[in-house]
Design a protein around this nucleic acid. Structure first.
Lengths: 368, 368
DNA sequence: TTGTATGCGTTATCAC
DNA sequence: GTGATAACGCATACAA
């Protein structure tokens, strides 16, 4: 009699070659499948049932002879974790335009993730397809990981908050105090900028201008904050006139503008570093266009690292953001959240290190 | 009467917040779990049962409000796909030592993966921190993805072959003809090197030496192959004397060695590009140490791109490996394998483009 | 058109 | 110590 056909999945998906399973190892070793599991993945602290050495060896031998390899999918499914940490950047992680890239962060992220035993899932904001095609919410896809790291200057607040409210472990790379409940690690731009300004004032500069882009990212706000603080501690006027803010510095920061500043007695400029490096690039070309010599006529400092297309130029005075360390710290924090260890962020601020350079010097003698 | 306790796993692991499952979406939408599955992953050709538009919307709405995202492990276990492509490098993908990195490849990989609707899983298999890096399971983890891209000069043949034999879609970035059955895409180093040698011979060089590391990677063998071919087509002796092979060029490639070559009439050197860039770096410093002027006294060419720590120097004559294109091509091939479209690799070799530079010129007049 | 009943390979638990 | 047995989350054949 033919066996009655029952509902359910086709016994063998007739897919690709199937690998040996624990059940087959068990048959070959003359034990149960569960025993195989116990032998092959023993509890770390020896808590589980102890297996006799003889059985152990039989199982191991059987597994080896069959070339058994555990199925990670099944393992993860049963363990309710997938050992995956997500990395989501609001711009492409590996942009064609190499000028703004998150590569330096990833150096630290990958290292630390590996050390902690996690693999990484790279999500891109732009990617349209992906596993969550049915769910239009781009950010929703990150839930496939055990937790997710977010980076980028502009963060969709609502969606991020939603994740956090759902108890999904989230860490933002970069200060994000406005988003309550969102864990973050960031660089101490305030302190680092104050330090750069201090360097300039000690050299004797009395009129300094901050060049920033028209951008409300905390990273920009922090630099401006530190800048103004730096002026204050030096007893200099810290009015809004000291800040030049432009949405398109390549256009607004002209040689004429620069000359007029020089005429007013401005002897030093600091520019913020942004994704595109536009502020610094514009500042440099304006200085050249104005025929000014740096650092003789004017001192320049960069609040961060120069864009890679300017790598051949001398590294300006400023500070270095310890990106790999930041990435590593973020991963550590994220891992602790995933492990359920509460808010384990003791010190979310990582210090930047001051970088002396050839672009700053004493101010020129006062002009008539 | 209390329900009899039966063996089995604890119903709820009492763990942390768990992601919503199809069952919960189903409850919220008032349908069965199977219906949710049907709505959320419809057959591409509309083969499966058709769901009424009204139910569809209810399910989608429920899924969205719950932030549902399919579990990749479960998807994969159920013999489906999870739209995940793996990337596994045998050296750290983002090494601390920035001199050798796979970043340029990833630019193309990420772009193409996103375009094809895949997310990327970065397997941190062989990174520094890996405690159990030696476990054979390291490669097994990639089975979590639908397929995997491998990169690196040194490939564990056995494990890779195992994956392929099991029908797991695998693409190797870099020529790998010795591993039968392993699909690959690579750069045409043979042709590109021949071209560089041709450039030198046309300039008039008759004695050229190849500096390579002591490394049996195909990438090295191909360059040597192309080098010797280039000599032959120019009618020059292509003996082994023309190849300088060293496991530690920083030590072996001395200024004295270089001078003696010059005395023998050698007027040009080509160095291979490797992970570390050691060959090229050593060559440069030896030339300087010998007090030779490039390109006046000696011509130098680099079979690849200079290491990033030499980015400030003039870009030498040589060729550019189209790394992003290679990465993209690899992803395309991998995706076609995942889709079951057989060996879709028509042309696995991508051309390198010759890069003229200031480090080569006519040979100096013959010395007495 | 929707619901029911498996099964994927593993881990975890309990009774023996 | 060992062996059943129940989930883990999802996909699918089949019944209704």
């Amino acid at each position: 009699m033919a066996p009655k056909k029952r509902p359910g999945r086709t016994p063998a998906p007739t897919g690709r070659t199937s690998r040996p399973r624990q059940a087959e190892v068990a048959r070959l070793a003359g034990v149960s499948q569960a025993t195989v599991s116990l032998v092959l993945s023993p509890k770390p602290d020896g808590k589980g049932p102890l297996i006799s050495e003889e059985t152990r060896q039989r199982v191991l031998e059987a597994a080896r002879s069959l070339g058994y390899v555990p199925d990670p999918a099944a393992r993860r499914l049963a363990a309710a974790r997938n050992n995956l940490l997500g990395v989501f950047s609001f711009t492409a992680t590996f942009p064609t335009d190499v000028r703004h890239s998150y590569y330096p962060f990833l150096v630290g992220v990958e290292c630390e993730a590996a050390a902690l035993g996690y693999d990484l899932v790279l999500f891109t904001g732009s990617s349209s397809g992906g596993a969550g095609a049915a769910v239009p919410d781009a950010l929703g896809r990150v839930r496939l990981a055990d937790g997710c790291l977010f980076m980028g200057r502009h963060t969709p607040r609502a969606e991020l908050k939603r994740l956090v409210e759902d108890g999904f472990p989230v860490v933002h790379l970069g200060r994000r105090e406005e988003l309550e409940g969102v864990a973050w690690v960031g660089a101490d731009y305030v302190h680092a900028t104050r330090e750069v300004v201090g360097h300039l004032t000690q050299l004797g500069h009395r009129r300094i201008v901050l060049v920033r882009e028209d951008d409300d990212a905390p990273a920009s706000a922090d630099r401006q904050h530190g800048f103004l603080e730096g002026l204050e501690v030096a007893g200099l006027p810290a009015g809004p006139a000291a800040v030049f803010r432009s949405g398109d510095p390549e256009r607004d920061l002209t040689a004429e503008r620069l000359r007029s500043w020089a005429d007013e007695g401005v002897t030093a400029f600091v520019a913020e570093e942004t994704d595109t490096g536009a502020a610094w690039r514009s500042l440099l070309s304006a200085v050249r266009g104005a025929g000014l010599d740096c650092p003789v006529d004017v001192s320049l400092a960069l609040l961060g690292s120069p864009p890679s297309d300017l790598a051949s130029e001398p590294v300006p005075t400023g500070f270095d953001i310890p990106r790999p360390e930041l990435g590593a710290a973020a991963v550590r924090l994220l891992a602790s959240l995933v492990a359920g260890e509460g808010e384990g962020a003791r010190e979310p601020l990582v210090s930047c290190v001051f970088r002396p350079g050839p672009t700053t010097g004493p101010p020129p003698p006062a002009r008539p």
